[in-house]
Simulated scan of single mutants.
Amino acid sequence: MGTHGSGPSFVCDGDKEPELLRDWLLKHPEALGEDVVRRWQGELPFLFKVLSIAKALSIQAHPDKRLAEFLHMNQPHVYKDPNHKPEMALALTKFEALCGFVNPEELKEVLESVPEFRALLKEHEVEMLLNVDTSNSGGGGTALQEAFTTIMNLDKDTVAEKLRELITRLETEQQVRKLTPKEELALVLEKQYPDDVGVFASFFLNYIRLAPGEAVYLSANVPHAYISGECVECMATSDNVVRAGLTPKFRDTEILCSMLKYEQGLPDVLNGSLVSPNTRRYSPPFDEFEVERLDVPEGNSIEFSAVPGPSIFLVFDGTGSITFVEGNSSPVKRGDIFFLPAGNQFTLLAKSGLNGNKQASANDGKGGNSLILFRAGVNSRVFSS
């Protein structure tokens, strides 16, 4: 949902022919608001998505602005735009992901408990990782980069052989002991992607599990892979992805290994902040976007105040109506998506006897019947600075 050429949105206005949102905005730049027009040269700066993940997505990272411009100039058929792609995933269901490098202590435990992983590294790399000062989460960057690069560049036969050894051992040992979450994940990933080096790469990365309503954000050059679950995702307007594992798609291993931030530790998890009784806001440290969740109890209404920038709304559950100041009113239902120009305000009414997805409503721990919407917009701090 947005203006990126890889999957652009269309504006539907009554009986008129659908028009690209990008073209509509060129005719109506005021819909972006003065600050957004000035800051992003008339472009919608964010892209809004919904993901439903049945099979792990690739081990990947998104380039920063400078690298994105270089990659787009040299490989425009692969890297389709010159923009960076910070992003945030907000869990709708239980959500699993690999995100960032594990701390030095956990990596030492991997070296001591996963012999197949250790055997793939050079002896001096093992020694460097084992001797990293665990009290300094940034102290092992050089050793970590060397070790990660070694494993990601292994030949396929070596990877396949050691993976067979790993899987055989884990399948045997799970008969007599409970496997660790990472070991269980390795079994799942190997079934989805046989002989893939990404299974070993997962031991380098934090394995996180989000509850519905929790979010994780990713800056440029942070390795990650979404494993399972459903989420709404927001990002800067870009489709640039550098992949190197758990994928049949093009792999750019050299670029990935050279671009990554080799910083260790768990990512920040956001729970959102209540900005009104019915609105929870998730604000990552990126100017391009934020996401809000709006909950309108059955039979109630809320006023949505005007904001200085554009918004895209997704009706996630329920039915109701939206009424603008001038009196125009339209019904809304689960699955509807609408664009709101800057400076507009409206009233949301949740109708009784909702026909939405009660399962989805119950999963977030709220319970009850509500009209639930997600809003993507420019980060509010842009307008307050």
Rank of each mutant, 00 (worst) to 15 (best):
D239G: 01
Y226W: 09
R243L: 01
C257G: 04
V241S: 00
T247I: 01
S219N: 13
Y262D: 11
L260T: 07
E254W: 00
Y217S: 10
V241R: 00
P223S: 07
S258A: 15
I227P: 02
T247L: 04
T237G: 05
M235A: 11
S238A: 08
E230R: 15
T247D: 03
I227K: 07
C257R: 03
C231W: 08
D252A: 03
D252Y: 04
K249N: 09
S219L: 12
I255A: 12
A236L: 04
S228Q: 13
E230S: 15
K261I: 06
T253H: 05
T237F: 03
L218C: 09
M235H: 04
E254V: 05
V232R: 12
D239T: 13
H224M: 05
H224W: 08
A225Y: 00
Y226S: 03
E263F: 07
A225R: 03
N240K: 09
R243N: 03
H224N: 05
E254Q: 15
G229A: 01
S228L: 07
M259P: 06
N221E: 15
D239R: 04
E233C: 12
S228G: 07
T253D: 11
M259F: 08
I227E: 03
I227Y: 00
P248H: 11
E233S: 08
D239V: 09
T247M: 06
V222G: 07
S258E: 14
V242S: 02
P223A: 07
I227R: 03
R243D: 01
A225G: 02
A236P: 02
S219K: 12
D252Q: 06
R251V: 06
V242G: 00
L256V: 03
N221Y: 03
Y226V: 04
T247P: 14
S219D: 15
Y262L: 08
K249C: 02
Y217P: 00
V222D: 14
I255C: 12
R243Y: 04
M259S: 14
D239N: 14
T237M: 09
I255N: 14
E230V: 13
V222M: 12
E254Y: 04
P248G: 10
A244S: 13
M259Q: 11
D239Y: 07
G245L: 01
H224R: 06
A236G: 14
P223E: 10
K261L: 14
P223N: 12
D252C: 01
P223F: 00
E230C: 15
